[in-house]
Amino acid sequence: MTSTPPLIDPLDDHTRARLRARVVAGVDDETARPRRDRRAPLAAAAAVVLLAGGVAVADSLLADRSDDRATLPSPLPIAATSPAPLPEPTGTEGAPVRSLASLAECEREVGALTPRAEPAVVTGDSETFGVFYRAGRRWTSCERTPSTVTVQGGGRVDAPFDRDDVAPWRVSSNVIDMAADRMRQVFAAGGPLPEGVTGIGYVFPDGITQQAEIVEDDGGGTWWRVLYSPVDGVLTDPAVNQMDLAPIQVQVALSGTVHRFTLAWGTDTCAQLNHGC
């Protein structure tokens, strides 16, 4: 058996100094580099149309670009229902809202995964929002919470509904606050709405059903998004192994019929710090 790693020497002084200089230079470079023009995503953000439960894009997405606001459409009204509020992130009390920086995080992550992707629609509030991107007929999404950025997707925007394919309904999960006796995590899913689908609901093992928010972009594309952050119950207990819980059930309404999908823990849920399913 060989699974004991060898002893590893610390970095020698020369290597340490070289790497440190590289890091410092990289930070200086990042700080000095001018930011990309973000007019396109901001315009997309302002063009959100809410068709079902959800929240409108907050004004604060535009907060520090007040000089641009006059040229953009006004945000649309807030819809009737909204997802459960998310907690303040651990250790970020007092941190300023960085809406534009946060959007830039999504752009950077998505850009690495899907070059030439353009934002189609943004939905959510200033700290917790989802952005759906298109690159030709492919799509990618970025879900941003106060402490995580999750990128997923890569499929075709015009993929038809497949009653035997669970992949479009998979969720990503991220722990956003961890304490010894309680944790907060966020489950996120979404994508282009398959033709004919009129409603999507996620039934979580704590008994909560979360309905999908459905939004339309200004190009006529329709998208769905589910975001759920439990505030109590089994999904907030750090001692509970998710593998022992009942699976998440997805209900999809299509042409008057409800189709059901079962998400296997671990396979159809992705727990990751940064990158999505």
Partner: peptide
């Protein structure tokens, strides 16, 4: 570190 529950 991994963003998962302790039980996991």
């Amino acid at each position: 570190a991994l963003g998962v529950p302790v039980g996991t």
